[in-house]
């Protein structure tokens, strides 16, 4: 990790989240610093997706505080829009807008919420399409692209908002196996460029490569949070050891 700056860019303290009776997050506290790459893993239903969805307000936490880049996240529209412009999100199911071309998918955010002109937004969009290596697909519609290409477009769409933080919610889980690496390569490149990111994933090879911090969640709690060397070689908790054994040896 880089030298720790004075204040974390994301500060989560004592966050609880319930869905009806089910507790999805239990007293979760986590600090993330500028430029830090965090990978969250854990069994399904452990609260990892809920956690990153809370960070940009797609889910509302019931108690505790979430502070993103110096701002406390509340339910007010102003707070939500401000936090969302700082934290980009990439979804498992891509969620591209099917009625818009790739280029229009990318320019919508900059034009409508950043005040860019059409021309400026298009230049920006092409810049990021080149970065995810599919500039030639700009005039196509999402359904004409492969899953891997769609996810790369979705990453570019988030980058067009020029966020300080990128959140990835199982970005490769909906992909055919042969397309996983093209998406991971793009994310690795992004990580190398110094982007602060939180990624929920089961791709442990990828995690080992990019993570500064590994977080393991189970039953809505953060069970373990440590640098990847220690996390993979010598995890503290029994639950984490169990989980790693299951996903690493099959």
């Amino acid at each position: 990790m880089r030298q720790p700056p004075t204040e974390p860019i994301i500060e989560i303290s004592d966050v609880n989240k319930f869905f009806e009776e089910f507790q999805a997050l239990a007293n979760v506290s986590l600090e993330i610093y500028l430029g830090e790459r965090t990978v969250i893993c854990g069994p399904s239903g452990s609260g990892k997706s809920t956690l990153i969805r809370c960070i940009n307000g797609l889910e509302h936490h019931d108690s505790g505080t979430i502070k993103v880049d110096g701002e406390y996240l509340t339910r007010s529209n102003a707070s939500l829009r401000s936090v969302r412009s700082k934290a980009g999100m990439v979804f498992q199911q891509f969620n591209l807008f099917p009625h818009l071309t790739v280029l229009d998918n990318l320019t919508l955010g900059p034009m409508r919420s950043r005040g860019f002109s059409k021309r400026e937004a298009q230049d920006l969009a092409m810049l990021y399409l080149e970065r995810v290596r599919i500039p030639e697909q700009s005039s196509k519609f999402p359904r004409q692209l492969s899953g891997g290409q769609q996810q790369r477009v979705a990453i570019a769409r988030s980058l067009c908002m020029e966020p300080k933080i990128m959140l990835f919610d199982e970005p490769t889980s909906a992909l055919d196996p042969e397309m996983i690496s093209e998406v991971l390569d793009v994310i690795i490149e992004l990580a190398d460029s110094g982007m602060t990111m939180i990624c929920v994933t089961h791709e442990m090879g990828f995690a080992r490569k990019v993570a500064d911090t590994m977080v393991f969640m189970d039953f809505g709690e953060i069970v373990e949070s440590s640098p990847p060397e220690r996390f993979f070689e010598n995890p503290n908790s029994e639950r984490c050891r169990d989980f790693l054994q299951k996903i690493l040896h099959h």
Partner: peptide, 12 residues
């Protein structure tokens, strides 16, 4: 997911 994607690019 369409709403979430729209919200994630800060659309009101």
């Amino acid at each position: 997911g369409q709403y979430e994607a729209a919200h994630s690019i800060s659309l009101g």
